[in-house]
Structure formats: structure tokens, C-alpha cells
Design a protein around this nucleic acid. Structure first.
Lengths: 197, 197
DNA sequence: GCCATTCTAGGACAACCATCCTAGAATAAT
DNA sequence: ATTATTCTAGGATGGTTGTCCTAGAATGGC
């Protein structure tokens, strides 16, 4: 079954193009041309464009989930794991500079389109949120774990957007370092609390 | 000349619709219908859709500029003025919940569209940036004024995006308060520095 | 009141879009 | 080898888009 192969290729190409150009601005013809397949062939694998979008979101959910799990397995401390998350800003610097945060930009676009897959796309945010929340819990911040997770998501989201707008390399590196410092303070704060007990 | 009237009405309606639905997803027909004028009539006032976009951006620049100037005139301290900026999150809460930050979402959309007015739209960010930078300077942070301005822009941008995604009222109020606290710390820090001198 | 300018209406146009359809190629099952 | 299934190609369709064009209405100056 070369079925799987073509279907996956469509999803992967759509994933890239949706990120680079946005969902609405990407047409079937473009994806088809990029893959060297015919437009009509699409409709064997996906009945509608929305179906491709959902497949792309699932693809991203799977990959993100795998990444987060990989970080957990590596036997590092929760602090290290959160640092890995913050480092996404630096690791994906080039792409963020060009196309912003893939999670945030898709979420915003689907919001404007009043698209039915909006909530599905927001699960990407939730995935990070829950994972981060768990890490903060393991750091000892049981009460404010979710709050800290949301705050960290906010921070990186804002940095990604402004970096994409101003394209200032110094800015993103400085902000990434700043967030790491913030995290250090959080971690110290925990230790102090633990010493009290 | 009722010319002015119609032209302005187009810009104002386009401003709203671009914010609510995005630039690309808003059609001439929609704007025309909302205003009760004919499609063809558009092309007397604007030769292309991009021209409307530029007019909308200028409109926003003017209004934002006026708002910032108004804050300066009111005879408050720079600290109060920055607090006014942070309070945008609370004041425009309902709109941000539905459509995100008007500056950030337009900037991101035009980036994805590879649109020629991208830099024009980013001037909205620059307007806030320069204004905030000036306020921080007046607060005594001469060296890091721009850095603080960018940081504050990041913070509010991130909060707006996540609020729009999760629609959590508690979150935005908490984060707004948190940013105000951050600002208080910045202001205190200045005072300490000044006491040293 | 007449004329020039300014404005408006609405149809026509080509381009593009997502989607559908059908015929045939490739592949797998027997 | 033959049949059934899976996959692909590419044209056709109907709707929407931005843009253009022309005829006429409204308006202002004289």
C-alpha cells in the first residue's frame, strides 16, 4: 500500500505550507505541485481541505507529544526539562523569525476564520500547558503549577511574535536568557520552601 | 464633498472587519454589504485592496498615536502612563478574547502572506515601542529603556494570544496584575538607584 | 439653469478556489 | 492470469475573488 506514503507526504507538505503561508492562503494546487501529484488525487485521501487541516493538527500533536516524552525519558530533572522548552525559542530561531510560533499563529488564524477546528488546534497549547504544569509540580509548585505553566507559555508566545515582527536576534537571545533566569528564581524559591519544611 | 464621508466609512468598516476576520478573509463584497454601497463604488476611492489595507494601517497609526499623546497630556507620571498601557489588556478584554491583539494578529497575517505592507503594519509595534521606551527613560532607566519596552510588549502580546486561545478570564486579570507588579518592581528599582546618587 | 466634476451603481471579466467525476493505471488477491 | 481493489490523473463545475468598465446620478461653480 503506497497509500500511506502519499497520504503522509500530503500531510507533511501541508504541515510546512500551513506554517509558512497560513492555512487559508495555502491552496490544494500548491500542495499538489510541491509534491508532484495531481489535484484530483487529493480527494482520494482527503474529502475536504478541513480534513487535511485536522490531519496536520494530529500530526503536530503526535510530534509534539513525542518530543515532550523524549525530554522526560532522557532522565533529566524537571528543571532541565523546562529549560528544554524555553530553548525551543533558540533552537527554532530561524523558523520563528520567518513564520512565528506554529502553535500561536495557527490558533489565531483559525480564530479569525471562525473555523470549526479551532479547538482542535488549541489542543497543541493544552499539550504544552499540561506538560509544563506537571514539570512545575515536580519542582514543588503544587499550588501554582498551572499558573506558572500559562505564564511561561505567555512569555514564549510573546517573544516569538515580537521576534518575528522585529527580526532582532539580540532580542530573542536576551529574552530567552531572561526567561531562564526567571525559571532559576522559581526553582530557588522552591528550594527555600522545601528547606522550611 | 461626501467623498470624505464614504472613504472614511470604508476605512472604518474595513478596520473592524480586518480585525475580526483577518485581511485576506475579508472580501470587498463583505465591506460593501456592511456599508450598503456597491462593490464598484469602491474603486473610485481605492484602486486596490492593498490600498485599503494601507489606509486602515494609517488609520490605526493615527488613532494609536492620539491615544498615546492623550495619556501624556493628562499630566500623569510616566509610571501611570505605562500602567495605562498595561490596562489595555483589561479595557479591551472582550475584544481581545474574541479576536486577539489587533497589532500582533495583523503583523503575523501579513508575514504569512508575504505582504508588501508588512513593515507598514509593524510601525504599530514601533509606535508602542518608542513610546514605552520614552516612558521608561523618564522613569530613570536610560540604559535599558528600549529593552524594557520590548519586554513589556512581549508580555502583553503573549497574554493576549493565550487569552484568545483559552478564553480564561481569570488568567488575563491575573497576568495583568502580575505585569503591574513587575512594573512596580522596576519603578522601585529606579528609586533605589536614585537614592544611591 | 447649465456645465464640469465628483461620486455611485451594477454588470462583465479573468483568475482562482475547493470540490466532483470519470477513466484508466497500478497493485493485490485468488 | 484474471479479477477486485486501490490509487492516480486531469478535465469539468460552480462559486468567489479582486478588478475593470461604462452609464448615469448627485453635486458644485458660474
Amino acid at each position: 500500500m503506497s497509500n500511506k506514503r502519499t497520504r503522509d507526504r500530503i500531510v507533511e507538505e501541508a504541515d510546512q505550507l500551513f506554517y509558512q503561508q497560513g492555512f487559508e492562503h495555502t491552496s490544494f494546487a500548491q500542495i499538489a505541485e510541491a509534491l508532484g501529484i495531481s489535484r484530483g488525487n487529493f480527494y482520494y485521501h482527503f474529502k475536504t481541505k478541513d480534513e487535511i487541516l485536522d490531519a496536520v493538527i494530529n500530526y503536530r500533536l503526535t510530534r509534539t507529544h513525542a518530543m515532550l516524552e523524549h525530554w522526560e525519558i532522557e532522565g533529566a530533572t524537571p528543571l532541565d526539562r523546562i529549560r528544554s522548552f524555553i530553548n525551543i525559542l533558540v533552537m527554532n530561531q530561524a523558523k520563528i523569525k520567518q513564520h512565528g510560533c506554529p502553535v500561536g499563529t495557527l490558533s489565531m488564524e483559525l480564530t479569525k476564520l471562525n473555523h470549526s477546528s479551532r479547538e482542535h488546534a488549541n489542543k497543541l497549547f493544552t499539550l504544552f500547558r499540561i506538560w509544563l504544569s506537571r514539570q512545575f509540580e515536580q519542582l514543588g509548585h503544587h499550588k501554582h503549577a498551572d499558573e506558572l505553566a500559562m505564564h511561561l507559555l505567555s512569555l514564549s508566545q510573546g517573544v516569538a511574535t515580537l521576534y518575528s515582527a522585529f527580526q532582532d536576534d539580540e532580542f530573542i537571545n536576551h529574552e530567552a536568557a531572561r526567561i531562564q533566569d526567571w525559571l532559576s528564581a522559581i526553582a530557588t524559591q522552591t528550594q527555600t520552601q522545601q528547606e522550611k519544611l
